[in-house]
Computed example of a mutant assay.
Amino acid sequence: MEKNNHFFYVLECKDGSYYAGYTVDLAARVEKHNAGKGAKYTRARKPVKLLYNERFETKSEALKMEYSFKKLSRIEKEKYIRKNRKEGLHNE
Rank of each mutant, 00 (worst) to 15 (best):
N34A: 04
K59T: 11
R55L: 07
K32E: 13
Y80S: 03
A20D: 10
D15H: 08
F7C: 03
H90I: 04
A28G: 13
H33R: 00
L26V: 06
H33G: 00
H90R: 09
R74N: 01
S17T: 07
R55D: 08
N53W: 02
K46A: 02
E2Q: 12
R85T: 15
H90F: 10
V10N: 02
A44N: 14
K86S: 14
Y67I: 03
A35G: 07
L26F: 00
K83Q: 12
A39Y: 05
K32F: 02
Y19H: 15
L50I: 04
M65H: 12
R82W: 08
E76K: 07
E78N: 05
K83Y: 10
K77S: 09
L89Q: 11
Y19F: 15
R55G: 14
Y9S: 06
V10H: 01
K86H: 14
E12W: 00
T42L: 04
K70C: 02
K37Q: 15
R85D: 03
K14H: 11
L50W: 03
H90Q: 12
K64N: 12
M1I: 09
V48H: 01
E54S: 10
N91W: 09
K70M: 02
K83T: 13
H33T: 00
G16T: 06
K32N: 11
K83L: 11
Y80K: 04
K77L: 05
R74Q: 02
Y41C: 08
A35Q: 14
E54A: 09
A35T: 05
I75T: 13
K77M: 15
K64I: 11
H33P: 00
E76C: 00
E61V: 08
L26E: 01
A39V: 03
L50D: 04
K59R: 15
A27F: 05
E61R: 13
A39K: 09
M1P: 13
K46D: 01
A44K: 10
K86R: 15
V30L: 08
F8A: 07
C13R: 07
H33S: 01
K79S: 06
K37E: 15
P47H: 00
Y19G: 01
M1L: 11
E92K: 14
E57A: 15
K3W: 09
Y18E: 05
K32Y: 02
I81G: 06
L51V: 04
K64P: 05
S68K: 10
E2L: 12
Y18G: 03
N5V: 09
A39Q: 12
K71P: 01
D15G: 10
K46R: 15
K14T: 09
Y52A: 02
E87I: 11
T23D: 09
V48Q: 00
N5R: 14
L63V: 14
L11Q: 00
E66D: 10
K46Y: 02
E2M: 11
K70G: 01
Y18A: 04
R85A: 04
K40Y: 09
S68L: 07
M65R: 15
E92R: 14
F69Q: 02
